[in-house]
Design a protein around this nucleic acid. Structure first.
Ligand SMILES: [Mn+2]
Ligand SMILES: [Mn+2]
Ligand SMILES: [Mn+2]
Ligand SMILES: [Mn+2]
Lengths: 219, 219
DNA sequence: GATTTCATTTTGATTAGTCAAAGTCTCTTC
DNA sequence: GAAGAGACTTTGACTAATCAAAATGAAATC
């Protein structure tokens, strides 16, 4: 059985690789993402290679093997189902569940996970709007883009916030920017680096491009 | 924060000490109970002493400090609430939940535990009939005895099976000896070392003293 | 009282995961 | 193409948890 540490590395590599054309992830991203020293990551990656979970080219990067991708998807499934449970069933707040799930994901057996999945009604998205992989490691489609890429004057539904720090999530909630809410881009000005948007019937307000990029919506 | 290992040691010491007049637990019991080598237990106990969780007299035994007892009770609470959740909410079988809870108990935060407790309706007993400590570490009263100590001809209710191995639990279930069921001791013969009992309206059968001792009932 | 036995403790080693700091590459920049 | 900057790797050291096997102590037996 992989240790919790191994599971965390593989999950991180998977998530990072999803944003990358060729699925190759740099050592620095991994170290930073897991808040460990660079050398720690290098030595851990060599372990993972010995376990055939990743392929590793020195000074180039890391890619998951099929085995690694399977484990990573499984971890994502665990993490997101647990998050869904914490919000849906226990009524916790979606801004504070990430850390909880970070621990629970390693402690939950396959059997318990299946029961949980059933109990929750086989949800497709977690409380942050992230898709929950199915048991055989398939992702539900996403079909969403960030607010910076949206043309104006069309209602959109918020699906996902990519920055899940408590600070950002709190800001988002204050503005009503929670998954499921309907928003409309009322104006875009790429020169001044800003997007104006309206949430429901409230007064429109302006968002910088950095923040706008973190908010994913479906048309 | 105590590691999962520390939590396991303290929980084991607490449970062992509950069966002992003076609350003192021998090194051998601890090592055996946790399935580690004797020397491993000795060295771990010294750690626990440094952390002020136990008092330790070389070659005599170990007792919990107030701090240790508090942690132990907390672990028992976690363990038993998780077990209750697994059976009540997810519908798992009470013969197979112990190991699951053994992992989950370390991964669950105070906040999640409280929500779970509330969600479950603040249960007082776990699926094995063990009392669940309250948040401030108080045990519900037990008022139950084992079947070997019972006088005949009086209906009793099964409260707890002290041997929680899968084998014993399966045997017990086959015989209908599950918590909540009503039984009656129809005959006791201490010389032949046996207890005869009837479950509901079924035909009475005989139990050896070892097994009888493992079944706790309330009058 | 000497001896044996058995539980316990000590010793020496191992493994996973980690860090700081020193060393090495590789890609820009001039 | 030499130099420098930054990313990456290596090295040496540390901690928690563990085991096997040797040493020790205390109680029971002779
Ligand atoms: Mn994790
Ligand atoms: Mn999530
Ligand atoms: Mn445990
Ligand atoms: Mn139990």
């Amino acid at each position: 059985m992989p240790s919790a540490t191994v599971e965390n590395y593989i999950k991180k590599i998977l998530v990072l690789s999803l944003d990358t054309r060729e699925g190759q992830v740099g050592m620095g991203e991994i170290a930073k993402g897991l808040e460990v020293a660079a050398g720690t990551a290098t030595s851990m990656i060599k372990n993972l290679e010995r376990s055939k979970l990743v392929r590793y080219k020195s000074r180039q990067g890391v890619t998951l093997t099929a085995k690694g991708r399977k484990l990573g998807m499984d971890m994502l499934r665990r993490h997101r189902l647990v998050e869904t449970f914490l919000v849906e069933t226990l009524g916790l707040d979606w801004t504070e569940i990430h850390q909880e799930a970070e621990e629970l994901e390693h402690a939950i057996s396959e059997k318990v996970l299946d029961r949980l999945d059933k109990f929750l009604g086989r949800p497709e998205y977690d409380p942050h709007g992230d898709p929950i992989p199915t048991k055989d490691g398939k992702f539900a489609e996403r079909r969403i883009r960030n607010l910076l890429e949206c043309q104006s004057k069309q209602p959109r539904t918020i699906k996902l916030l990519t920055d899940q720090s408590t600070d950002f999530l709190n800001f988002a909630r204050r503005k009503g920017l929670v998954p499921g809410t309907s928003v409309e881009v009322t104006n875009r000005d790429l020169i001044s680096d800003a997007v104006e948007l309206r949430v429901g019937n409230k007064k429109p307000f302006t968002l910088g491009s950095k923040a706008a990029k973190k908010i994913l919506v479906s048309s």
